[in-house]
Amino acid sequence: MKNLIWKCVNTVRKKAALLLLTVLATQSLYALDYPEAGDFAKGSKAWSENCARCHNMRNPTDLKDGLTSLFHMRVRAGLTGQETRDIVTFLKGVNTRSRNGSVSNAEVKASVNESQDKLLGKGIYENNCMACHSADGRGGLPSVPDFTRKNGRLTKKDSELLSNIINGYQSSGSLMAMPPRGGNSQLSDADLNAALKYIKASFSE
């Protein structure tokens, strides 16, 4: 059986090589804008879904100048170019300080849909928080708290929770901190408050 498989492989080898060369020859477009902007929310999701496939999650802030690291990971983890750009945009957003709590990150402007301003609560959670906290609020990654747990994180005062979301938070024993504003400096205090209300309404008992 194995011999038969290899016989087939050898038969199509030349055709496959020819097809490959043809595909290579037709690919001549490179990014004119560098680094191209990606999508913040998709980048957050790709970050949380791919890094832990092989190693412990690293803090996004560990890779402040991580452009080359991401191209290295693109090769290693088989990421697409678009996924790489999305993660680059996510990391740039996370590592850009918010000034006076207002919009300040022009770099991520292309990544955030204009309609995002209108999304409240659920939408904000899904686009910015769900990658790590998961759709059911139980936490999708190691060290991410389970919102549904009795006497868990959501028993804290709203003001304290909102402050943690705005300023970032690293709980005792956890190796990964939640970045300020979930990493998206374009979210206003009102946006984050709406997300918090959604979280409490959906996951706390």
Binding site: V23, L24, Q27, F71, V75, R76, T80, G81, Q82
Partner: peptide, 23 residues
């Protein structure tokens, strides 16, 4: 980086057979 879906790697590389050696 040829395009979004293809990277041509030339030289001495870690074997892509399995996951342990390359990742």
């Amino acid at each position: 980086f040829i395009n979004d879906y293809m990277v041509l790697v030339g030289g001495k590389f870690l074997s892509p057979i399995g996951q342990f050696r390359q990742n």
